[in-house]
């Protein structure tokens, strides 16, 4: 490892490991998305109807609320990474930083809202 040119300083250190981490997380979440989204579609279609009473009592069971929270964590992480790549591909000036920040704020705020709603339904179960 030299201390002269930039390339000299980084040569031999290997990758920053961030790029590969992004790629792997995108695929790990893709796998869990696949399972959880199919679970959600099958569950919703199998409900007799989508009225308040039916959906509310379905989501207040831990067997629905827990996978639903996992789904939010998986899908929201997945699309945050995914949209980040889309922004990186098209946005080359400062707007990139702005969009990237908005994306992160949006994902966390929206994910928190979603999980809060699920928990609220789950914990206020019986009352309808």
């Amino acid at each position: 490892m030299g201390n002269g040119t930039h390339i000299g300083r980084v040569r031999g250190l290997g990758a920053a490991h961030e790029g590969a981490h992004h790629w792997v997380t995108q695929r790990l979440t893709a796998g869990s998305n696949l399972l959880l989204m199919l679970w959600l579609i099958v569950s919703l279609v199998r409900l007799p109807e989508l009225s308040y009473g039916v959906v509310q009592s379905w989501l207040s069971s831990p067997w629905a609320a827990v996978p639903m929270i996992l789904l939010v964590i998986s899908v929201f992480n997945h699309f945050r990474l995914g949209l980040q790549v889309v922004i990186e591909d098209y946005q080359h000036d400062e707007t990139r930083i702005v969009l990237m920040s908005l994306l992160n704020y949006f994902t966390i705020a929206a994910g928190t809202f979603a999980i809060f709603s699920i928990l609220k339904v789950a914990f206020t179960g019986a009352a309808a």
Partner: peptide, 28 residues
């Protein structure tokens, strides 16, 4: 499709969950 689901799909999803948590009248 990925970007579409991440925007339109997520808005509908949040709206649905939010209305469900808000109660029967809002859900209806």
């Amino acid at each position: 499709t990925g970007s579409g689901m991440a925007t339109v799909g997520v808005i509908v999803f949040l709206w649905w969950l939010g209305a469900l948590a808000a109660g029967e009248r809002d859900y209806a």
